[in-house]
Design a protein around this nucleic acid. Sequence first.
DNA 1: AGGGGTGGTCACCGCAACGTAACCGCCTAC
DNA 2: GTAGGCGGTTACGTTGCGGTGACCACCCCT
Lengths: 133, 133
Amino acid sequence: MTETVAALPTFDPACPMSAFPIQIGGKWTVMIVLCLDDGPRRFGVLRRHLRPISTKVLAETLTAMGRDGLVRRCPVEGADDGGVEYELTPLGRTLLTVIEQAREWARNHAGDLLRARATYDEAVAAPPHAPSA
Amino acid sequence: MTETVAALPTFDPACPMSAFPIQIGGKWTVMIVLCLDDGPRRFGVLRRHLRPISTKVLAETLTAMGRDGLVRRCPVEGADDGGVEYELTPLGRTLLTVIEQAREWARNHAGDLLRARATYDEAVAAPPHAPSA
DNA sequence: AGGGGTGGTCACCGCAACGTAACCGCCTAC
DNA sequence: GTAGGCGGTTACGTTGCGGTGACCACCCCT
């Protein structure tokens, strides 16, 4: 009775992979990467563009991304108002291709998914054994 | 002073894309898809293999995936113990390529990320302005 | 009719993520 | 000196996801 379990892939909780299923970071990580795609951006620019993100969450997320080596924080060149810029590191840039794949998937299949969801909800609202009329 | 904000991509909260940044589903969704890759599996087999997942969370996740049209629930053929099987739908199968891309990324870069993280943590533990000795 | 295997549901809980809002230090301009 | 922008930090509240454990209905076997 060893069953077929052994034939399946194993997900050891200690395996680093389990930390990167596909959920790359926080709620905003992907959007930040996308925003930084074509050049460094200042904190305020990111914040305004990602609105309604809060300064707290943006700062937290950028710190976490800095820790992971995805983003680099550097003083803005030629402006002495103390401003800083955030810039994608080479490692951060490698995420772009994965993100693009995911966006491609969404472009192609998000409609199907949403349609399936609507159909399902409709069926639940009007169950087969409890007809409305 | 219109700034460059308008030049960046827009993330309308109402846009369906914002629901699929890259975080495909719950904590276990990707693992379930992987488990179902080479054929339908019974609830109990999934549960045992995904341990330490709980029956509740597995049932919830499978329901959600069914709602999204990623998975189909069907009575197991030839067994009359009331058992059921879960099977990937064609839509669910389309996720496999995305997941494979993400795993490929992790295989190639997870080490870098973890190393960056360790370096960062080390630097925080021994800050430049507060040397331990 | 009792026990064991299926495949669940339900009530409750804890934690981490997210959000809100106040406050802060730095610099510039007036 | 004070007002305002920038780039945060802190305290606090809330919410939702995931986890735990009890319970349940169905079917089969004995």
